[in-house]
């Protein structure tokens, strides 16, 4: 691998942290177990169980990702991080066994995004996490595709509640493709319909009248 390729790869990775993306903001809220390596003065209030006003060295705390990222860099390591349990080897084995049955929504609704962010810490297990994320998606892809392309006008909440936020976006795009095609086949598109906005607007007016 040439060096120019390397730098481009890491640039792409950094680009996934999007400043204006709401999904990204939510994903970086996820907590990571951290251990303090230095004593921190006057921040004892972060941990209500502490009596002192300082955080002593060696305290274990769960910090949000964005804070942990700032505190744990190559230059100065105020904290060391531990992997959240969903990304540990035990869970990776579960994913390997059958990724389709896992409820990714429960494991943090931003499973992939947060997992990608975790790689920033250069944990020894990072390469394995990256590979596992890709594998999990590849394994789950078929089910998402089949469900989204076959279920027309059905309640899919049983299926979608297990999906990660990213997978949900993909799922709804699949549904849109199917819906458009069905609309075309049944010639629904030729009919002129009242815009949703107009319908809702009228409703709102009526409720206003009722109240007054």
């Amino acid at each position: 691998m040439s060096s120019s390729h390397d730098s481009r790869g890491s640039q792409n990775f950094e680009a996934t942290g999007d400043y204006f993306s709401l999904d990204d903001i939510l994903a970086t809220q996820e907590r990571i177990p951290c251990t303090f390596q230095t004593e921190v003065l006057n921040l004892g209030y972060i941990d209500p169980s502490l009596d002192s006003s300082n955080i002593p060295k060696g305290t274990k705390l769960e910090l949000p990702f964005w804070l942990a990222k700032a505190l744990c860099s190559r230059r100065k390591q105020c904290v060391t991080i531990d992997l959240p349990k969903h990304y540990k080897e035990v869970y990776r084995d579960v994913f390997n066994a059958d990724a389709n049955v896992v409820d990714l929504h429960k494991l943090g609704p931003y499973f992939y995004r947060f997992g990608s962010h975790l790689l920033h810490f250069e944990h020894p297990e990072s390469p394995d996490i990256a590979k596992s994320l890709l594998k999990v998606f590849q394994a789950r892809f078929r089910d998402i595709m089949d469900a989204s392309q076959n279920a027309y006008d059905q309640d899919m909440s049983k299926m979608t509640e297990k999906l990660d936020e990213m997978e949900k976006v993909i799922f709804f795009h699949g549904q849109k493709g199917l819906k458009d095609l069905q609309m075309w086949e049944t010639r629904e598109g030729e009919k002129i319909k009242i815009s949703e906005m107009v319908i809702n607007h009228r409703k709102r007016k009526r409720t206003h009248l009722d109240e007054s």
Binding site: S116, L119, S126, K131, I144, M166, G177
Partner: peptide, 26 residues
């Protein structure tokens, strides 16, 4: 019929692949 679905899915895979190569480079 598959375009909206497939392009999104491939985008996502591309991102995950980038992670893998990023990890390997590190």
């Amino acid at each position: 019929t598959v375009r909206p679905f497939l392009t999104k899915a491939l985008d996502h895979i591309q991102q995950l692949r980038n992670n893998v190569s990023y990890g390997a480079a590190l």
